[in-house]
Design a protein around this nucleic acid. Structure first.
Lengths: 232, 232
DNA sequence: TCGACAATAAATGTATCCAAAATAAAAAAA
DNA sequence: TTTTTTTATTTTGGATACATTTATTGTCGA
């Protein structure tokens, strides 16, 4: 369970981050420094630095003289994270539409849409298609964030993105209808960007993220069945 | 130049943060660990932890094997920070209007407005009124952020708030007309919240912050001789 | 049996030491 | 003189040792 020999604090943080998001460290679990240092074969100093980074990224909580623990996110916090994401990704989208995107970037986004189309055209989501679709989805959103020209958006959205991942790992986006609807959003969003319609692109992305949040909340809470209204 | 004897890494980070925002460490300046440890009379270990925290908060930049340096913010980044702030504070404002605020909170906000009214009623901003007005302004915005019920908003906005402060020119809002207009915004914002008009509260706060950003950008991009360092 | 207090164990916080990398400086070659 | 190479110094990164705080547990007393 040791990591590669060239270990810097950032590497350790990334390593632990993966394992936390994978659910290997349960929410609320204490992150003992000596235990981790023995587990990874590294001294406590870089471990501490990595834990501090993760705490500042919001994945761990820290109490003085009591150490770090995996942060637990309430349902309300997950909802709050999606609310913020919706606004920030909408802003990124609007910025992209406003100042326009380079042809190469647009081509890459269109390629994302085409891949999603191919996967969804089967009418059913094969298990082996899940990872490619997720990667495509990440690239689509990340591209808009980075190409918005506003560096804060990406940083904050990534922090928000961790929240549901760290809370519970019992959700899979396997519902074909939900994904198809979400992917249709992508089409309309990119179209609005190409048309340089910032207002529309912004509104579409906001609802797109809010819809994802709604679906996730429904999966996590299990009972909320109230419909999610979408504006055209 | 030493700090209090009970020094934890968080204390050191706060201490350095103050001094960075006060302009004591110029943007781009390297933060030498041994130098800081001698300056503060503390060993390097907690210094390193504090620097890591500040870097994660976005006040410092870190390069492996080259250490930390005070981050420099371009004009575009300052503008970007205001753009994000505008959306996030608008969201906070809308949330407050949507779910309503407790009477005690509303009373506190009204007290803020009253204080601003008293200060502005003089027709001219006295130097001794600047600090109280600024404190009032901070309390007004912070209250809405914390009472929005969305913890991410406060965290992110505070990070954005550091950006213009960390630029090497910090300005005071000395123009009576600008402050009067800004304070009038406060009135209209609170009124919208009291009326539970979330849409309007959101739009007002968005424009309010954007206006502040616009004014600041004008000051920063114009002849920098007009600016005044923040007084201690 | 239950609670309070004390002693032990464990974990965190800090300081110091050593190694590796980077920067600066000095010497050698063109 | 300029460039390159080598050496020395500085600075950061990691490991270990010590101090302080917290948690656990065991004992005593009511």
């Amino acid at each position: 369970m040791d990591i590669k020999s060239t270990t810097t604090a950032a590497d350790i943080a990334a390593h632990l981050r993966e394992r936390i998001l994978a659910g290997e460290f349960a929410p609320g679990a204490r992150m003992h420094q000596v235990q981790l240092s023995e587990m990874l074969g590294i001294s406590r100093t870089p471990i501490r630095e990595a834990l501090g980074q993760l705490a500042n990224q919001g994945l761990l909580v820290y109490e003085p003289n009591r150490g770090y623990a995996v942060r637990t996110f309430s349902l309300a916090e997950i909802e709050a994270a999606f609310e913020v994401r919706a606004r920030l990704e909408a802003l990124a989208c609007g910025l992209c539409a406003r100042h326009g995107l380079e042809p190469a970037v647009l081509a890459r986004l269109r390629a994302c849409l085409a891949l999603g189309d191919r996967i969804l055209a089967k009418g059913q989501l094969e298990p082996e298609d899940l990872a490619p679709y997720r990667a495509m989805n990440v690239e689509f959103h990340e591209t808009l964030l980075t190409r918005s020209g506003n560096a804060f958006l990406g940083d904050f959205v990534r922090q928000c993105h961790n929240v549901p991942l760290a809370s519970d790992r019992v959700f899979v986006w396997e519902d074909h209808g939900v994904i198809a609807r979400s992917h249709d959003d992508h089409h309309r969003i990119l179209h609005a960007i190409e048309m340089r319609d910032a207002e529309r692109a912004e509104a579409l992305m906001r609802e797109h993220v809010r819809f994802a949040g709604f679906v996730l909340m429904r999966m996590l809470s299990g009972t909320h069945a109230e419909g999610h209204r979408r504006s055209a």
